[in-house]
């Protein structure tokens, strides 16, 4: 099977093969989804080291629990839930003052030139900083919905709460972020 053919295989096929112990099929799934899971983890935990560890744990756990996945086509949703959970666990274990040690990943020194492109990037930096002011659950809800476009239902399951509660957390997160972004108006 060529690389191109392997890349075209759908999730359900790769999951079924992986469950039979086919590590090459699983590697295709890892290559396909490591990017979105890494970006999700980075946005929730805020540090590249923790994000890498979380994603590595998620894919190893997923491999071990493939037998528990009832719907082979639901692999991606399951990954999103597992990654969110893993990240929230990392944050719960972190010491309260550890937030000050977060990486300044792609958050360079504030730029002040009134260049349009530069201004937008500075806004992104500001948003990244503002996200740290949210509670971990609020941040997870907001990132899953607004950046990764996941459904309320899926987010509720990932956080272990109701859809209504997810909507409430999103609303508060949005209001808080808008407040921090106000100087950029």
């Amino acid at each position: 099977m060529s690389v191109a053919e392997a890349a075209a295989l759908d999730d359900a096929t790769l999951v079924a093969r992986s469950r039979d112990g086919d590590t090459r099929a699983y590697e295709q799934l890892v290559r396909r989804y490591q990017g979105p899971m890494y970006r999700l983890a980075l946005r929730i935990v805020g540090s590249t080291g923790d994000a890498e560890d979380a994603v590595q744990d998620v894919f190893l756990t997923a491999w071990r629990r493939l037998g528990q996945l009832n719907d082979d086509g639901a692999f991606l949703g399951w990954l999103y839930r597992t990654t969110t959970n893993q990240c929230l666990n990392v944050l719960r274990k972190r010491k309260p003052h550890a937030d000050t040690e977060l990486d300044e990943h792609e958050s360079p020194a504030p730029r002040t030139r009134p260049d349009r492109a530069v201004e937008v990037s500075a806004q992104l930096d500001a948003l990244q900083a503002a996200l740290r002011g949210l509670t971990p659950e609020q941040r997870a809800c907001w990132v899953l919905r607004e950046v990764h476009g996941r459904s309320y239902d899926e987010i509720a399951e990932a956080i272990g709460t109701t859809q209504q509660s997810v909507r409430g957390r999103l609303a508060r997160a949005r209001a808080q972020l808008a407040e921090v972004m106000a100087p950029w108006r």
Binding site: R43, V120, S121, Q123, L124, A126, L127, Q128, E146, V147, R174, L177, A178, M181, A182, W184, R185
Partner: peptide
């Protein structure tokens, strides 16, 4: 502003 920065993110 938030919506714009979110799209960028």
């Amino acid at each position: 502003v938030l919506r714009e920065a979110t799209a960028e993110m």
